[in-house]
Amino acid sequence: MISLIIMVVWLGQFPQAHAEPIAIIVHPSNPVGSLSWGELARIYKGRDKKWKSGKPIVATNRPTDVEIRKKFYAYVLRAKPTQQFRPPGTPLPFKTRRLKSGKATKKFVSRIPNAIGYIHVRDVDKTVKVLRMGGYRPSETEYELK
């Protein structure tokens, strides 16, 4: 028992790994305020190519070796970060806009009205709109993409 307590105290002195939420962002003028994870997956698989307004969706992405893309693909698309998706009716894979950094993603989404992207919460500011995903905001504990 004592050894257990000692171990707990010993472990307690180390900072715990804190996973930062990944926010799904769109242009502030986009009327969409929330999506389900399934809808987001369909966008990034090239199955849904238009917003409900009829405007074409411009999906942004990050390089394949970046940690945030690995997390995004693993959780949202259930796939390796290098996987490509081919929508029905075409022999060509679906293309996304690849941006180098979270800052570039935020700036791109803030400029292109039909764009969607994913960035760390720390990179979010008022130039973009954060979507409620699966009913939760990134600040809520139930938010799943971390």
Binding site: V58, P91, L92, R97, K100, K103, A104, K107, F108
Partner: peptide
């Protein structure tokens, strides 16, 4: 660098938008 990247992505976006209008592919 960030500005250059944004400019290039803007340019790419415009180009892509034009390409999206008419896509020619083959296999």
């Amino acid at each position: 660098e960030s500005s250059i990247e944004i400019l290039s992505t803007d340019l790419e976006s415009v180009t892509q938008t034009l390409q999206d209008r008419v896509k020619l592919n083959l296999y």
